[in-house]
Structures are given as structure tokens and as C-alpha cells.
Design a binder for these strands. Structure first.
Lengths: 213, 213
DNA sequence: ATTGCGGTAATTGGATACATTGTTTATCCT
DNA sequence: AGGATAAACAATGTATCCAATTACCGCAAT
């Protein structure tokens, strides 16, 4: 079954939002997108509604569409929610993670540590965290978590750009601790390590108000 | 600023889904809705996308739209997420709840206890819980919570229909305990009482697999 | 120089017609 | 009678056009 135009258009726009080609606050004109992606305006409108549902686009009736921005408060809230939901998702995933997945997680921890540029770090970091959750059944919980990852992507990129080496070192240690608990199948410890990692990131992020100008 | 057709159509459909006029699994034909609500098909499609974003409608490309169903597992997951998120939301709300709101909560606890029919109970119960959160800033967290309340509405109705008096008595006591902690502005206790209430509901719900036939 | 108002242009909203896809029904063959 | 295939039908997807709304620009008044 081929996917319909709105879904394809939404995927292109979502990728562009996540990779930084489209930035928060940027205007999205239906006609521009339609011309660029070779569709008519109707499917583009449909696609924008899909992305609105994902929190990535803000539609204003009779005015237009914009890539969504997050205020500092909203970003802090996103991290508070992550602290609550991701350990739960990890606990659901852990019993079902197979040995290949755990081996890949170990590789990722190493690769993240030696990653040289921001984009590689972001990609690997995302892969690590989402792979931790891969053993869980798809559903509302994983949708919420993915939604938060997507809506905070821009701010994680900006944050990574100004992180100092000491903070990066802490991040790497935290990843090791999460991995260790996963490897030992210690769900309680894995949840605690993950919650602490997210909380420490939130607190560190709160020291950089200039990200939200 | 008058709201546009898709938003109005979505509101009507959302109300019908929440009040039980439309039930999970029911087919939603674009032409039927368009004729019934006096719009053309385009705004109806838009509205269905909006409701899809809310989790209330399931769209299948080239096939159609249905009121979403929840499996037993999904419903359990929704309650697990509630256990994590609603105490957080309550903690954000509590400092800002004013005395009128707290007085209304006290009224509601009484009204819920003396409610005679299922629909009144559902309405008041919902009002109680959402009013507990009214002091929090709108954002992702409150959107997630509202989304869960809406997607589980049908199952809460079905559950309320077969609840025995002993379970109802426990529910009323739990409401009292939540109210007491709120009245005293004891955030830690309020969160605990709420988490326990939700968890006990989840566990009780899990004993009724027939709800998910 | 600033503010307010009116008109116009740009863009979005919605209706309608045609295209496409999936399901159902009818027909043919074994 | 049962299965396979083709045609018809129903519903969704998309293109196009007209309607409606908002934002912007220019001009006049203070």
C-alpha cells in the first residue's frame, strides 16, 4: 500500500524540522511547500494538520503555519515529563531487549563518546535512547516519548553546541551506568540511572536561558 | 475570530465520542458527516485529522476513519501513564489553586458521592480531576493528560456501569484524601493519594477483561 | 514623526469535480 | 458448486477554483 501525499509531505517536513533545515518560528507557506514537493495545496494542508498533531507545527486559523517554538518553561516541562515517562517505558522494554540490541547499545555508548561533531552526537544519542525502549510495545507511551524527542530536537542541538567537556563527560558516564543496569537486567537501577540522567540534563539546560531568545 | 469549519466539526464529533453517541470501532464516513453537519468534505477531512491527532479517531489511508478502540493492554498503559503524569500535573497546579477552586473541589467530592446515575458520576468525576489541575500552565503535560482522559472515556463509562458499591466507596474515600491534602496544600501527600487512586483503579480495571471484547 | 484608517494584496478556507483505490458483485470456467 | 477473474460501485485522495480573512501598505490627520 503506497502512502498518500499528506503522509509523504509530512515526512519530508518532519525530517527538515528535525535536521535543522527548518527552524522554530519559521513560516511554512502552503503554496511554497506544494510547489517544492510537487503536490497540490490540499495534501499539504493535510500534512500540516498531521504535523500539528505531532506538536511540530503551529497552525493559526486564517493566518498560516509555523514551525513550533518551545519556551524555556515548556522545555523544562518536557524534561519533567521525560523524567516520569522514559523510566516507565524502559521498564516495559527491558524484559524484551534481545542480546543484539544490548550489544548495539554498548557500541552506541562507545560511539557517542568518540563522536566528533554535534550532528553525529545528536543522531547517536537519539538512537541510544530510543533503542533502550525498543523492547516495549508501540502505544501511547512510546508515542508521547517520541513526540517529546521531536519537539525538543532543536533545543537539544543548540544545547549540545555549547556544552562544555565536563558536562559531556558526565553524560558519557551516565550512559555507561544506564547500559550497565540494562546489561545486568536490573530494571530498578536502569530506571533510576535514566531518571537521573534526564533530570541532570534538565537542570543543566535551565542554566542556559539564552537558548530561548 | 470565528472558528473555522474543521474545528467546529471536530468539536461536534469529539463531544459525540465522549458522550457515547459514537462508540469505539464505529465507522465515520466523510460524506455522512459532511451532510449531517452542513459542510463540504474538505473540512470534514481536516476535522478527522485533528481528531486523529487527539487519538480519538483512527484514519486508514484509502479506506476510511473509525472511532478509535483501546485494547486492554493499551488501557492499562494509559493508566500507567496517568500514574506518572497526573501527580506531576497536580504538583504544578496546587500552588496556584485559589480558594474558590478548592471550595468547588469540596462540593464536587460531595456531589460525586451522592450522584445517582452513571453519566452524572462520569461528568463530576472528570470535573473533579481536571479542576485539580486547573492551576497549572497549559502545555504538553496537560495536553497529554487531557488526551488520556478522552481516549479512555468510553472504557471509564463501561467500568462505572459495572462497579460494585464497595469499589465506589473506596473511590469516594480516595477523593476525600486527595481533597484533604489539597486543602492543606500538602503537595507530596496529594500526589501520593492521587497516584494511589489511579493505580487502584488500574488494578481493579484489570479484573474486567470483558470490557475489551 | 507617529498613529489611525481604508483599501488592496496575499494567503488560507471551503466547495466541487475528477482521479485513484479498495471492496463487492457478477460472470465464467473447471 | 466452488474458485478465479473482471467489472461495477463506493469511498477516499487530490486538483482547481472561488470565497473569506488577515496582514500590509499608503495616505491623511494630529
Amino acid at each position: 500500500m503506497a502512502s498518500t501525499s499528506p503522509i509523504r509531505v509530512a515526512e519530508v517536513l518532519r525530517d527538515e524540522i528535525l535536521n535543522g533545515a527548518l527552524v522554530p518560528g519559521e513560516r511554512l507557506r502552503q503554496e511554497d511547500i506544494a510547489a517544492r514537493l510537487g503536490a497540490s495545496r490540499q495534501p499539504v494542508r493535510d500534512a500540516l494538520r498531521l504535523l500539528e498533531g505531532d506538536g511540530l507545527v503551529t497552525l493559526v486559523a486564517n493566518s498560516g503555519a509555523w514551525v513550533s517554538k518551545l519556551s524555556e518553561r515548556e522545555c523544562d516541562e518536557a524534561y519533567l515529563v521525560r523524567e516520569r515517562l522514559e523510566p516507565l517505558l524502559l521498564s516495559q522494554s527491558l524484559p524484551n531487549l534481545n542480546s543484539e540490541q544490548v550489544a548495539r547499545l554498548a557500541e552506541l555508548v562507545g560511539e557517542i563518546e568518540s563522536s566528533g561533531d554535534i550532528e553525529t552526537f545528536l543522531r547517536l544519542d537519539r538512537e541510544f535512547h530510543l533503542l533502550c525502549y525498543a523492547g516495549a510495545q508501540p502505544g501511547m507511551l512510546s508515542e508521547f516519548v517520541e513526540r517529546i524527542w521531536n519537539t525538543t530536537q532543536h533545543y537539544r542541538r543548540a544545547f549540545a553546541k555549547l556544552s562544555d567537556p565536563a558536562t559531556s563527560e558526565i553524560t558519557h558516564m551516565e550512559h555507561h551506568l544506564i547500559l550497565d543496569a540494562i546489561t545486568r537486567r536490573d530494571s530498578v537501577q536502569a530506571e533510576r540511572a535514566l531518571e537521573g540522567h534526564i533530570r541532570r540534563t534538565r537542570v543543566t539546560l535551565a542554566e542556559h536561558k539564552e537558548l530561548f531568545s
